[in-house]
Computed example of a mutant assay.
Amino acid sequence: MTLPAPASLSETPLATGTRPLGDRQRPLRPRITELVLSAFGRHRRAVLEFGACTLLAGGSGSGKSSALRAFEALARLGGGAELGEVFPEPAVWVPEGARGDAQGRRGFRIGCVADGPEGPVRLEVAVQAEPEARIVGERLTARGLVLLETALRDPRRRVVQAAWHTAGTAAVTRGRLPDDRLGTALLPLRVAGTTPGQRTVLAAAEQMVVALRSVFACDPRPDRMGAPVPTGTGRLLGGCDNLAAVLWRTRAECGRRHALLVDALRTGCAGPVADLLAEPCGDGRVRALLDRGDGTRTDLGRLGDGELRHLALALVLLTGPGVLEVDAPGEVPDALRTLTVLADNLDRGLDPRQRTALLRLAARMCDRGHIRLVGAVSDASWAAGADGVTVVHLDRD
Rank of each mutant, 00 (worst) to 15 (best):
A73W: 01
A75Y: 06
A57H: 08
S66G: 00
W93C: 03
S60M: 09
A52E: 11
A70E: 06
S38M: 06
G41I: 14
F87M: 04
T54Y: 08
V47D: 01
L77T: 14
L68M: 14
A75D: 01
S38E: 15
G41P: 03
L37D: 02
A75R: 06
A46N: 03
G59W: 11
S66I: 15
F71S: 02
L37C: 06
G79R: 12
F71K: 06
G51K: 08
L68F: 11
K64S: 05
A39E: 13
R69F: 05
G80E: 06
S66P: 00
L48D: 01
H43D: 04
A46M: 06
R42W: 03
G63W: 00
K64P: 11
R69L: 04
R45M: 12
L74Y: 01
A57E: 14
V92M: 11
S62K: 14
S60H: 09
S62Y: 11
A70C: 13
L37Q: 05
W93M: 13
A75Q: 02
P88S: 02
A70F: 13
F87E: 02
L48V: 11
R76Q: 09
P90E: 03
V86G: 00
L68V: 14
K64L: 09
G84R: 15
S65W: 14
F40D: 00
L56M: 08
S66C: 04
A81H: 05
A46C: 03
S60G: 04
R69S: 05
R44T: 10
L68A: 10
G59M: 09
R42K: 11
G80S: 08
A46T: 14
E49R: 15
G78L: 09
W93H: 15
L37V: 10
A81D: 12
L68T: 14
C53S: 13
A91C: 08
A75M: 07
F71W: 12
R45T: 08
G84A: 12
A81T: 15
S62P: 13
S60W: 04
E85H: 10
C53Q: 12
S65Y: 11
A52N: 13
F40M: 11
G78I: 14
R76S: 05
E85P: 05
L37M: 10
L55W: 06
V47I: 15
G61Y: 06
L77P: 08
L48G: 00
F50R: 07
E82F: 07
G84H: 14
R76H: 03
G59P: 04
V86L: 00
E89M: 15
A81Q: 11
F87K: 03
L74E: 05
V94K: 12
G63D: 02
W93L: 14
G51S: 06
G63R: 02
S38F: 05
K64H: 08
G51D: 05
G78Y: 09
S38I: 05
L48Q: 07
A57K: 08
F40V: 01
F40H: 02
A73D: 02
A81V: 13
S62D: 06
E85I: 09
L83N: 02
L56S: 04
E85C: 01
R44E: 05
A70H: 08
L77R: 06
L83R: 04
R42C: 12
G58L: 05
R44P: 00
V86E: 00
F50H: 08
V94D: 07
